[in-house]
Amino acid sequence: MPEFIKPSRLQRGDTVASVSLSSGFVTEVPHRYEAGKRQLRDAFGLQVVEAPNALRGAEYLHRHPQARADDLHWALENPEVRGIFSVIGGDDSVRLLPHLDLDLIRRFPKVMLGFSDTTITLMQFLRAGVHAFYGPAILTDLAENAGIRDFVARGVRRALFDARPFGLEAASEWTEEHVDWRDEARQEQPRSFQPSDGWVWLGGRKRVEGHLVGGCLEVLDMLNGTPGWPEARLWDGAILCLETSEDVPPPSQVGYWLRNFGAQGILGKASGLLMSRPKAYTPDMTSRLYDWVKRVAWEFGREDLPIVANMDFGHTSPQLTLPLGAKVVIDPTKATVDVLEAGVS
């Protein structure tokens, strides 16, 4: 397995930087951003400071990818900043690749938290040899209506604050209820959640270990073939964690992406596969998705591959926080997924 640097764990009283590496949408919902900051303070004792360009708006940030990369570098070099939290995702942080300094990431390893389009940046942390964290953004579950859910708080605390192994858990309830973030009156009204069916086991019988690598499939597709695509060594023996976005790609498209991973040799070398609850899928779409996943595993001779689906990470709520790069074990006989080492030191 590749060796990674563990960033220092967060503690109460620490300052974290908010960064808009993908979209400047935050300026359209300032009340929700303030709610996220307040809830981070109340739940974890964290103080949030904005990176210099984080609140400059969507048009400015779209025109200036260098400014977004500068914000990441500023947060890394700033001795008062202990962690870096993504404000929100987007669709074009692949444009940051020419401007990112991987040597700086390695020299100043810090907690980096985000998901969706932040997949681009998290992958560069792995390429620099530093653990990264696939979890909620400030405007999503950290600014959840009426407060951060207990499931989310536990996941963040275990991954970012506790320097010890931990088990992943299935949420007892989940939601896709849409709330207009621009409606300030709704911020303190909780969303409706429904009972969860738990994880779905699609394949594999043997206990396996590997390091976590993955993210949002649509974003990985944008990254594929660029200089920011992880080197082969980072995929070797990995447990893949893959999810889909609100774009709602059809099951066949997910199958095509997995075939690409098969053709690259990634599936052949993988130790296991974790898949999130697909955003906005009907039961029929979910069934067809599972058929596609099992079909592609068979096509590339990986019927032995342990596959866990319907997990609570990515574009679902509430979200887990996954320590990318950390060693994980999948045990089909016990129906467990455990993180064998802390993501932080």
Rank of each mutant, 00 (worst) to 15 (best):
residue 8 S to C: 12
residue 10 L to D: 00
residue 11 Q to V: 07
residue 16 V to W: 01
residue 17 A to G: 13
residue 19 V to E: 06
residue 19 V to T: 14
residue 19 V to S: 12
residue 24 G to L: 03
residue 24 G to F: 09
residue 28 E to S: 05
residue 30 P to G: 00
residue 34 E to T: 14
residue 35 A to Q: 10
residue 39 Q to T: 09
residue 41 R to H: 12
residue 42 D to Q: 15
residue 42 D to E: 11
residue 43 A to L: 02
residue 46 L to G: 01
residue 48 V to R: 11
residue 49 V to I: 15
residue 52 P to E: 06
residue 53 N to Q: 13
residue 54 A to D: 03
residue 54 A to G: 09
residue 55 L to P: 14
residue 62 H to S: 14
residue 62 H to F: 14
residue 65 P to C: 09
residue 66 Q to L: 15
residue 71 D to N: 04
residue 72 L to Q: 01
residue 73 H to N: 04
residue 74 W to F: 11
residue 74 W to S: 05
residue 74 W to N: 03
residue 76 L to Q: 08
residue 80 E to R: 05
residue 81 V to M: 01
residue 82 R to V: 05
residue 87 V to G: 04
residue 88 I to K: 06
residue 92 D to Y: 09
residue 98 P to F: 00
residue 100 L to A: 13
residue 103 D to Q: 08
residue 108 F to A: 11
residue 113 L to P: 03
residue 115 F to H: 09
residue 117 D to V: 03
residue 121 T to L: 12
residue 122 L to N: 07
residue 125 F to I: 05
residue 127 R to F: 06
residue 128 A to V: 02
residue 129 G to N: 04
residue 139 L to Q: 07
residue 147 G to K: 01
residue 153 A to E: 04
residue 155 G to V: 01
residue 167 G to L: 00
residue 168 L to D: 00
residue 175 T to C: 12
residue 177 E to Y: 08
residue 177 E to M: 11
residue 178 H to L: 15
residue 188 E to Q: 13
residue 193 F to I: 13
residue 195 P to H: 09
residue 206 K to P: 11
residue 211 H to R: 11
residue 216 C to K: 02
residue 216 C to Q: 05
residue 218 E to C: 00
residue 223 L to M: 14
residue 224 N to D: 15
residue 227 P to Y: 08
residue 233 R to W: 08
residue 235 W to V: 01
residue 240 L to A: 06
residue 240 L to H: 04
residue 241 C to N: 00
residue 242 L to M: 06
residue 243 E to C: 09
residue 245 S to W: 08
residue 248 V to Q: 10
residue 250 P to L: 13
residue 252 S to M: 08
residue 260 N to P: 06
residue 270 A to F: 10
residue 270 A to S: 11
residue 277 R to C: 02
residue 285 M to V: 06
residue 294 K to Y: 07
residue 295 R to I: 14
residue 296 V to P: 13
residue 299 E to C: 13
residue 300 F to Q: 08
residue 304 D to V: 09
residue 306 P to I: 00
residue 306 P to Q: 04
residue 307 I to R: 08
residue 307 I to T: 07
residue 312 D to Y: 07
residue 313 F to E: 04
residue 314 G to P: 07
residue 318 P to E: 04
residue 322 L to M: 02
residue 324 L to D: 03
residue 326 A to T: 07
residue 333 T to Q: 15
residue 336 T to K: 11
residue 339 V to M: 02
residue 341 E to H: 01
residue 345 S to A: 14
